[in-house]
């Protein structure tokens, strides 16, 4: 699997990096869904993403939907400029909870 994750202050944090495209988004999807299946609240760190295509964004959408069904927290952190422009195209910047980093998310969680 080409992406890693860590557990930090109650969240599983999946760090995507480089190009998240047709070739690599199935790995991203599998990791996101695997973390959620383990009932972990989940943040996806996009700070090191150079490019994310629709298949990568679709994996995030699917993860968010699954988290909602399972009553788990979900969000994006460190959304790079490249990733943000793709999210904005489909107005998904208004759908996902987006925070600068884990600290900002925890502050919002209260």
């Amino acid at each position: 699997m080409s992406f890693g994750h860590r557990v930090e202050r109650g969240y599983a944090v999946v760090a995507l990096r480089g190009d998240v495209d047709l070739a690599r988004s199935p790995d991203a999807r599998a990791l996101i869904l695997q973390c959620l299946e383990q009932k972990s609240d989940l943040l996806v760190d996009l700070s090191e993403v150079d490019y994310i295509d629709s298949s990568g964004v679709a994996s995030l959408v699917e993860g968010y939907q699954m988290a909602k069904k399972e009553g788990l927290k979900f969000g994006l952190i460190g959304v790079s400029e490249a990733a943000l422009s793709v999210l904005k195209l489909a107005r998904l910047d208004q759908v996902f909870p987006i925070h600068a980093d884990l600290d900002a998310r925890l502050l919002d969680d209260g």
Binding site: R29, S54, S55, E62, L89, A90
Partner: peptide, 19 residues
């Protein structure tokens, strides 16, 4: 052209229809 999961393909198509 791809072997993506059915749910991924469906979300991608709906996203592009939204766009």
């Amino acid at each position: 052209h791809t072997r993506l999961d059915e749910s991924t393909m469906a979300i991608m198509a709906r996203m592009k229809l939204e766009v």
